[in-house]
Simulated assay, not measured.
Amino acid sequence: MTLFYLKLIVTPLLMWAISLASRRWGGLLGGLLSGLPVTSALVMTFLCLEQGTAFALGAVPGALGGLAAVQATYTFYLFATRRLGIATAVLLAILFYGLAAYAFTHWGSLYLSIGVALLLIGVLIRASGREPRPDTLARPRHRYWEIPLRMVSPTALLMLTTRLASWLGPATSGMLAPIPVIAWPLVVFAHMQHGRAGMAAMVRGNAIGAVGVIAFYLVMAGLLDAWGVAIAISLAMVCAVGLTVGLAGVLRRG
């Protein structure tokens, strides 16, 4: 019961904080924060506590396959919206994610998923950098239901994934862990409110954060058996945050 309340409280609070940060400091920071392995860390923590560490380790290849599918989906959306409307592009991107995630987790491999994810991260950083810069002086209209909707969606996915984990199995549970339920609403809302410039900034932040997500899974998988759940996931998060901040700084100077 304690784990249930932790899921119910922690996830929406994180979504609320990231949404406010995005409003206050812009899409790039919002993308960086939502691109960090927040949902992934929560899913993996609860999988360890409820299903055991062996189950969580078995979910890592699926999670990295899901991450590669996420980057493929952002790439699809970034280029599709040059010709299609937002609603059409969102529906096609969700369908594309399902197909890509299934392909990576059932027919791919751990190294293939990492390689494709890194390649697509490079494509996204380069392509988003060529988009116009967002107008920081513009004051978009914020609807009252936006943040509550963003808070509910990742909480619902976390509840569903961990609840059905024993039935779904480690591969599918891992595939669901990196679904961008925090980032995806932010990207779409940024597109509607700030146009392509705001959307591109959010996607760029997510792509940079995805490098940290890869580090998170690799460090967690390497330390989990030897160090235990709390230390392994904490160190993995520290590595993810450090790598993301470092890469963001290098790209900013460049």
Rank of each mutant, 00 (worst) to 15 (best):
A117F: 03
P132R: 10
L36V: 07
T88Y: 04
G58W: 08
W25M: 04
A56V: 10
W145H: 09
L118C: 06
A89W: 00
A101S: 15
P61I: 07
V70L: 14
T105F: 05
V123Y: 11
A69S: 15
L118K: 00
A127P: 02
T73C: 09
L20K: 14
G30A: 11
V60P: 00
V60G: 04
Y97K: 03
Y97L: 13
T45E: 02
P37Y: 09
L64D: 06
A127D: 11
T136N: 14
C48G: 09
L47S: 12
A100L: 09
W107L: 13
L42E: 04
H106E: 15
P61G: 11
W25Q: 03
G27P: 02
G129H: 13
T88R: 12
A80Y: 06
Y77W: 02
T53K: 14
L78F: 12
G66N: 07
A56P: 06
R139M: 14
I86R: 08
V38I: 15
T73Q: 08
G66D: 06
A117P: 01
C48T: 07
L47F: 07
Y144A: 11
L67F: 13
P37L: 06
S22N: 14
A41K: 14
T81W: 01
R82C: 10
H142K: 10
T81F: 02
R24I: 09
A87H: 06
G115A: 15
I94D: 02
L110W: 09
F55I: 04
R150Q: 15
L47R: 11
G62S: 04
R133Y: 00
G98P: 06
M44G: 02
A100M: 12
T45V: 05
G65D: 03
A138H: 11
A69T: 06
R130N: 14
H142W: 15
I147E: 06
I94C: 04
P148K: 11
Y77F: 15
G30L: 14
L124V: 03
A100T: 02
G35T: 06
A117S: 15
R24C: 01
Y77H: 07
A56I: 10
A138T: 09
A80V: 08
L78I: 09
L57F: 01
R133T: 01
T105V: 15
F104K: 05
P37M: 05
L91P: 00
L20P: 00
A93T: 07
M44E: 00
V43N: 04
L29I: 05
T88I: 00
L33A: 15
G52H: 02
F55G: 12
L47I: 08
V116K: 04
V116G: 03
L91M: 01
Q71K: 07
L124M: 03
R23S: 06
T81A: 02
L99N: 02
L28A: 14
A21S: 13
M151L: 02
V38H: 07
Q51D: 00
P61S: 13
M151A: 12
R126V: 03
L33M: 15
Y74L: 14
L99M: 10
I86M: 11
E50L: 09
